[in-house]
Amino acid sequence: MSAARPGTPDAYFEDMYAGTEDPWHLAERWYERRKYDLTVAALPQPRYRRAFEPACSVGELTRRLAGRCDSLLAADRVGSAVLTARRRTADLPGVTVRRLTVPREWPGGAFDLVVLSELLYYLADDTMDELLERVRASLEGGGTLVTVHWNHPVPDHLRTGTDIAARLAALPWLHLLADHREDDFVLQVHTRALPGAGRAPTPAEREGLV
């Protein structure tokens, strides 16, 4: 993950990974595997040119995203997680894994896909606003923003997936394309508004079905 809640020491995530490679058992649980598969299935375009996945943890979602991206930059703030993600994606072309703490350390250039998975509930309001502004500035017109977050209250989380969805709904530069809600998590797909043209076309519109 990429940020701890206010008052949580910076060592919080380092401690989570101490003594275990995968503290959330992301590679083992059917819940996680199903959620990752749904996330990739919800992508509205068959292929992306350049994608960014901050808070990649040990790279389980990264591996799935790689099959849809020419170039994928994954990042995490925890050094051991970065090393694990690098090892797990070493056989995949186009994948780079870096140690970054977002939003302060945000990569340059433009992206046509940004994936925020299990990240935003850790961020204080001002930090979340800064991160979303970074997304706005780097996401191309018509690009895709995917968010997926746990929807149960947790002491270490500042908000739920439902709370995050309400926050994103207030951003005029985003158009909601898909909204998948379960008791356990909220998965949303937004597209970046096209300059002067409104929302990006839907998958059906893109293929002339509408």
Rank of each mutant, 00 (worst) to 15 (best):
Q45F: 12
E105I: 02
D22A: 09
P93Q: 06
H152Q: 15
L194Y: 01
R99I: 00
W30L: 12
A66K: 00
L92F: 06
D163A: 06
A41M: 14
R34C: 08
P203M: 03
V148I: 14
Y31V: 07
G141H: 02
Y12F: 15
P103R: 01
T202K: 02
R77C: 15
E21G: 12
L38N: 09
R199P: 09
A200F: 00
D163I: 09
R29S: 14
T101M: 14
T96K: 06
G67E: 08
L43G: 05
E32N: 06
K35V: 07
Q188C: 00
Y17C: 13
A3N: 12
G198L: 03
A178I: 10
A193N: 09
L73F: 02
L38V: 06
D91L: 08
W24M: 04
G7P: 03
E133A: 11
P23E: 11
S2D: 14
V210W: 08
D37N: 10
Y122F: 13
F13T: 04
L158D: 08
R99P: 01
Q188E: 05
T191M: 00
T89L: 11
V97W: 02
E53I: 14
D184W: 13
A4N: 14
L38H: 11
C56Y: 07
E32D: 13
D22Y: 04
G196V: 01
H175P: 04
E205G: 02
A18Q: 15
G79S: 12
E32G: 04
V58F: 06
L116D: 05
E182K: 11
M128R: 10
E14C: 02
D37F: 00
V135Q: 00
V40Q: 12
L100F: 00
L194E: 09
D156Q: 15
S117E: 01
L26Q: 10
L61A: 08
Q45T: 04
R159S: 15
G198V: 01
A193F: 01
E21C: 11
